[in-house]
Design a protein around this nucleic acid. Sequence first.
RNA 1: GGCCCCGUAGCUCAGCAUGGAUAGAGCGCGGGCCUUCUAAGCCCGAGGUCCCGGGUUCGAAUCCCGGCGGGGCCGCCA
Length: 650
Amino acid sequence: MIYSPFESFRNEVKCLLNNALKELYPEVHTELELEIPPPGHGELAFKAFTLARELHENPLVIAKRIQKKISSTIEKGKLIAKVIAENGYLNFFVNIDALASTIHESYMNLGEKYGFNPVKESKRIIVEFLSANPIHPIHIGGARNAFLGDSIARLLTWRGHKVRRHYYVNDMGRQVAIAAYGYMLLGKPKLWTKSDHAIGFIYAVTSTLLDLRKYKINLERAKALGLDEYYSNLLRKIDSLVSVLSELRQQSTEVFDRLVDEFNKREDPEAEINHMIWAYENRDPKTVDLIKGVCNLVLEGFKETLSKVGIFFDSFDWESEITSWSGMTKNILELLKRTKYVSFSKGTLVFNANALINQRPWLRTKLNIPENYEVPPLTLIRSDGTTLYTTRDIAYTLWKFKRADRVINVIGMDQKVAQLQLKLALIALGYEEEAYNLVHCGYELVSLPGMSMSGRRGKYITLDHMIDEAVRRAKVEVEKRSPGLTEDEKQRIAEIVGIGAIKYALISVSPLKQVVFKWENVLSFERNSAPFIQYAHARAFNILAKAGKVARDAKPYKGYIQDPIERDLIILLSKFPDVISEAADKLRPDLLAEYANNLALLFNSFYDKLPVLRARPKELMLTRLWIVRIVQVVLKNALNLLGIEAPKRM
RNA sequence: GGCCCCGUAGCUCAGCAUGGAUAGAGCGCGGGCCUUCUAAGCCCGAGGUCCCGGGUUCGAAUCCCGGCGGGGCCGCCA
């Protein structure tokens, strides 16, 4: 069974090279490293420089000698056509007919699943992603997470793993309590707009009021103590909060005024919120009802939004139920206390992560911790006895490992330290294997031009807004280009194209790069965008549709692949399964996005230059039709693995 | 202050792990292509101190050291 044609070619090259090297230089044992040469120099290259240094010989001479040896052993009809020594490189040229028929063989076996490239040992993998706090709508930062996580889950499935998507509902945090507090102050009102948007508003107002109150208290103290600098500093902060509030007020004046009113009647909101956190952790029925209610309202909104972008979860894991009410976090705290890495400090329990590292210095290499970096201690419980996020996350992680061999957490880079502390805590508890199988798939955050987003201040662009805008703009394009379609068709295409554009924009950049959100970048419908790739797919599909029954006879005929564009296309198509394995193993969907764009680019050139249905003789037509078929399948699969739909027409 | 990530064409980015053959795309700019499978397209062109300075090397965008600029983290937040 051939999954990866290009891999077959690579293996043949390696085999030939190995044999030649064994005979020519039996004393040398170098690891064979092959690279992709620049255009015109074959498809795989072996660099003779390293070998040359070892043998103290001229690389050009060595390359020539190996070439001579290998040339005689190349078998006709196999994947290597010829080998040429140039500039100290040994360049291998692929036999395009053989490569095409290898692809064809793989396609005949896998059919529409061409590109499926399973690992030898399939694993149970949990991908935890999004897990946005249920206190405000999903914004563009959350969208990056959601698209990334979804695509990674899809890729891992195509790598033969058993993948499950989990959403961790953080219902125990302070933020949720704040949102619920505001909701309670309003008397649990009927919501005036989409539930997650409404709660997001209540949360932003309540949270800002809380901060304002805190600053004001500090201000009086500062005044009394005569701390002038601190005083004016606070004054500035208060000023900015006041302007945030006046902006918020404009969004929903009536609710805002009522909330401020109720808030100001309260003696000590801070204490009430702390009590709520405590009560929820201790499963007080009324508090449970309130907080769970608020979370469910927001989650309802999330699910509506996510279904629009085709993202679904296998499981919603409630933090409260799994980690706290089950007693698991308590048990873990007991176990942690017995290790020598936990101590009492100022009335709280602290995990000294660094003490663990000092005792086992090799962990630095294993976990990629910089030489002189001191991992900050982790506070495990508040002085009132309630637990903290990362503490509960230890319990949740172990829960996940009861159900999976590997756990991938798609979480922003801003939580790097917390994820590291989590791993170290697992090791302290004796779960070393689990720590190594826990992968933090991090990505840099999305910001707005000139500022970062803030849920606490209600400053964000929501995914809902982004979808509406994208679909609206796509609709305009569809109207312009395909006026003949029915209204339903136009709407459907606009949705596929608009949503695809957003997804591609957020997935195609490397996770290490921060994204500054600009509408014109996200809503691009030109090259290097989802619509560009979708368009190429629609064109390919169209040719196949026009070919009708003839398409069934499409296959590569020997000697009919002559144009360089056809050659390049076939080589690129042969690499698709390789790209899948690399993107999946490295958790880098952006690599797949780049591949899809390159394939679309090349296919469009092919489309423009070489006629398919009108090509004669018949063998040429059928060969080209076959190329179109494989391009269509690969583009569709690549798009789908990015979570993007491949339209049949546009 | 300590640590992490990023810095490549006017703009958005790929390439950097494993150093090697002319540093690649897209947007934008200039020019050309629709009686031929959908022009959301194709072709041609201009455009680069690969942030700066050292070092390692026969060879550095890529590795090391030191700066500069942007972002993040260092909480009884998540």
